[in-house]
Amino acid sequence: MSHKFEEQPHNAITDSKIARVIPCKELDLGDPLKWIRLGLRDMLKAPHITALFGLLFALVPWLIYYLVVQTGWHLVILPALVCFMLIGPFLAAGLYDVSWELEKNHVPSIWHSIKAITRNAVNEWAFGILLMVLMIFWLRVAALIHALYPPYLDDNFENLLPFLAVGTIVGAGFTLLVFFISAFTQPILMERKVDLATAVMTSMNAVWVNKKVMLIWGGFIFACVAFGFVVGITLDYILGFGSFLFTMPLIGYASWHAYIDTIETKRGRKFE
């Protein structure tokens, strides 16, 4: 279903004057399903590149799992999950490039995807640094929460529950902040010669205007990441982390279509 862009509603973000805010459209609740369908189509059109990026996304949580096993610090799971979601948008740049190439009826290539980060290099790397700073800050907060855990208590669920609850609440806050900041920032920087502030403010405004739809979309992303971590660490690391081979490329491709469907362009886009 196509949408028409309407006059941009005023809110604290558009009125802040921090940076230009590119207008967005108001989405329908069923749009995330359309993005997933289009993302799946892109996966089937570029299976080799998809497999390569899927392997990369699966390797990161496996390394986190290895860290948990070696240190015995099970409370690292929640910080690790949030960190994975922090760096995900930055790593997904290559997947965005594949969908963009397919949209232009070009044949995507691995090298072209790798070079995607250089199109708006200064601002894209600044975005990466921003995510890294947020990740480091979150790790410090997580370490503080862990430091409050009495060392004399056994590592059972009853004793861990209060700290897991606190970590979940704080982590949810960080995840929500990062989702506002990063939902559309990376594809905006890739396709348009705009500064980081414009991309971030545009992303935040688009999420705010479409709170219900983006809550569904964000919930789907979180569910995919959480499933992989929980199953991988508690039941079967091959099944859990292997799921990232499929889910993370799908999320990357679908996120590009979410961007195309949400942020205003000067000319119409045909991607269905």
Rank of each mutant, 00 (worst) to 15 (best):
Ser2Met: 10
Ser2Ala: 15
Lys4Ala: 14
Glu6Val: 08
Glu7His: 12
Gln8Lys: 00
Thr14Met: 03
Lys25Asp: 07
Asp28Ile: 05
Gly30Lys: 06
Leu33Met: 14
Lys34Leu: 12
Arg37Gly: 07
Gly39His: 02
Arg41Asp: 12
Arg41Val: 09
Arg41Lys: 08
Leu44Lys: 02
Ala46Asn: 07
Gly54Pro: 05
Ile64Phe: 08
Ile64Arg: 07
Tyr65Arg: 03
Val69His: 00
Gln70Lys: 09
Thr71Arg: 01
Val76Lys: 00
Leu78Arg: 03
Leu81Ile: 11
Ile87Pro: 10
Phe90Ile: 10
Ala92Ile: 07
Gly94Met: 09
Tyr96Ser: 08
Ser99Pro: 01
Ser99Asn: 01
Glu101Thr: 12
Glu103Lys: 14
Trp111His: 05
His112Pro: 03
His112Cys: 11
Ser113Met: 06
Lys115Arg: 13
Asn120Leu: 13
Asn123Glu: 13
Trp125Pro: 09
Gly128Phe: 03
Gly128Thr: 05
Leu134Val: 05
Leu134Ser: 15
Ala143His: 13
Ala143Asn: 15
Ile145Gln: 00
His146Pro: 03
His146Met: 12
Pro150Ala: 15
Pro150Asp: 08
Pro151Gln: 04
Pro151Glu: 10
Tyr152Phe: 09
Asp154Arg: 10
Asn156Ala: 11
Phe157Tyr: 12
Pro162Trp: 13
Phe163Cys: 11
Thr168Ala: 14
Thr168Pro: 01
Gly173Leu: 07
Ile181Phe: 00
Ala183Asn: 11
Phe184Asn: 13
Gln186Asn: 08
Pro187Phe: 06
Arg192Ile: 01
Leu196Asn: 06
Asn205Ala: 14
Val207Gly: 00
Val207Cys: 00
Val207Gln: 00
Trp208Ala: 06
Trp208Lys: 13
Trp208Asp: 14
Lys211Gly: 01
Lys212Gln: 08
Lys212Asn: 07
Val213Cys: 02
Val213Leu: 01
Val213Ile: 09
Leu215Tyr: 10
Trp217Asp: 14
Gly218Lys: 08
Gly219Gln: 04
Phe220Tyr: 10
Phe227Trp: 06
Gly232Val: 03
Gly232Gln: 12
Asp236Gly: 05
Phe246Tyr: 15
Phe246Gln: 10
Met248His: 08
Ile251His: 02
Gly252Phe: 08
Gly252Arg: 04
Tyr253Val: 06
Ser255Glu: 13
Ser255Phe: 03
Asp261Phe: 01
Asp261Leu: 00
Thr262Ile: 09
Thr265Leu: 10
Thr265Ala: 15
Lys266Ile: 02
Arg269Asn: 12
